[in-house]
Design a protein around this nucleic acid. Sequence first.
DNA 1: CTGAAAGCGCTTACAG
DNA 2: CTGAAAGCGCTTACAG
Lengths: 335, 335
Amino acid sequence: MKQSVTMRDIADKLGVSSVTVSKAINDKEGVGEDLRKKIKEAAIDMGYRLNAAAKSMKDGLSYNIGIIIPERFTDVTQGFYMRFYQDLAKSMDEHSYSGIMHILSMEDEDNLILPRVYLEKKVDGFIILGQVRRSYIDMFLQTDTPIVFLDFYTDQPDVDCVITDNFYGMYDLTNYLIRLGHRDIAFVGNIHATSSILDRYLGYYKSILEHGIQVDSDYLVNDRDENGQYIDMTLPARMPSAFVCNCDQIAFYLISLLRRKGVNVPEDCSVVGFDNDIYAGLADPNLTTVEVNMAEMSKTAVSMIVEKLKNRNSSQGRVAIKGKIVYRDSVKDLR
Amino acid sequence: MKQSVTMRDIADKLGVSSVTVSKAINDKEGVGEDLRKKIKEAAIDMGYRLNAAAKSMKDGLSYNIGIIIPERFTDVTQGFYMRFYQDLAKSMDEHSYSGIMHILSMEDEDNLILPRVYLEKKVDGFIILGQVRRSYIDMFLQTDTPIVFLDFYTDQPDVDCVITDNFYGMYDLTNYLIRLGHRDIAFVGNIHATSSILDRYLGYYKSILEHGIQVDSDYLVNDRDENGQYIDMTLPARMPSAFVCNCDQIAFYLISLLRRKGVNVPEDCSVVGFDNDIYAGLADPNLTTVEVNMAEMSKTAVSMIVEKLKNRNSSQGRVAIKGKIVYRDSVKDLR
DNA sequence: CTGAAAGCGCTTACAG
DNA sequence: CTGAAAGCGCTTACAG
């Protein structure tokens, strides 16, 4: 290794102690203004770079956060969590933290294998992005490491998590359809697959119930198995006037499926999605959907974990971030 | 901070020295087999975790690699580099390295701002994923940090980089079209935007030249400005029988554009892409394209950087990884 | 305002 | 095979 500049080198050059250099560079009190300035200039001149490892050893903090993403949310067709990661990276940067992404394989999840970054104390805490098995979470919680869940939650009471407001998002969106005159509205999604889908369904269902609407028994259309693998959808016997899909991707597929059956969207049937991801713009027509506020969610999740790092007992519980409806061309006004 | 278990704790408990514990845990020689076993068991019992920072201080290595991705390659519609990152993460894991992603903003790129992870010595080297400005690269090269470029290269001679074999990939693909009877073949892409596009163009052009084909002057269709922003495409006056697109995404858009003009693919006109990304499967018809071997490229790039970390003078230069043609439904056989 | 001392947890080189 | 000593680069707590 090429030897690099240390605080001691700066100290020697300027004839001061390394303690003083440390104080000057870290903007701590106890150094004269003139000296501080001289030291900082010398640091730049000499190409000084902080040794994060040495700092780490003193305060026991790595200033890294592990971001765990289950493998099943990362395939070609799902850029969603990858985009989330970007927003997280930005937020972490604002707190002078860095992120280390860990893709959790199905195998490690099943066998309860902790990530290497945990075993090596390379990170101070974790953000888990996307629902993982309960047993895995339980194990993680027992390690007593600061953790924040992002975009999902469990029924454990004192767990911190940041979610999008799935319930009210879908409630608002369904109300919008009803306002436009829709009455026969089906929901597409496997409500046992994730807590997000279930909540979106319940938001839809609240709206249905509030409006005293009766819904056919096959108006709950399954779209995936419990591992998240998409399956062929079975359309209801009697066509609804609108489909509320649990996500944009499935709305995209549904529109293709309908077209193949000779049903045009939105002329013959309306379709709405959720997420406002790449599929919303790819669908023809473009989807009316609920936009998830990733930037805000990321910011909140990072603030939460940083807060927990400072104060291990801090707990903010479940925080839901509001999305907003994006109106596009996949809904017909029936009035 | 909750105090955690150190090697010293294990040593004290077993009545040995911490040196012995270190040797046992790291599988170094100089410990009896029985003792080694006892120490390892105690380590697990006591929940020992290595302190990566302390190790770092000794050998001056963080066991982290910085992955720099220019912001312009990360928008909603481009999951490509995010997927690359996943493969990189896997490869790094195999070398016991972790990755820290840094999204390089246009602003930092213009102002030659080095990433924070560099200034804090949080990483031992960098992989730059996606073409960045020459001035930025030059600055980076001057820092004398091990760097590998991934998916692009420059004309600097002794720089390590891993690229997909753009030239031969497109050459093979164009030959395939010609074998199928196509003669009027246009290329879509701004050849001044990136080195990849230029190489793909040259592969196409080699095939054209070798077959003695004359090409209309407007058979080079521009698709984006030099910042990578897509622009409206101007179709050639005389329609070709096939379009060779520099990437799947633009092939996807081209197919829509053609359809709007009443031209059906592949009946009236063939279209091929490059990358085999999400757009290849989304396009209707599915695209015949060249699949980039991300896994192999990632593996190679990580091996290269790890090699450079061990031996600063090692240099492998430009390595091109072969892709392979994926045959689907967007090409018509003219024979 | 300035600095000598001690220590964070590990590993290397050497002595026994 | 086992361990005492020294040191990696920084920061904290304290003395002057």
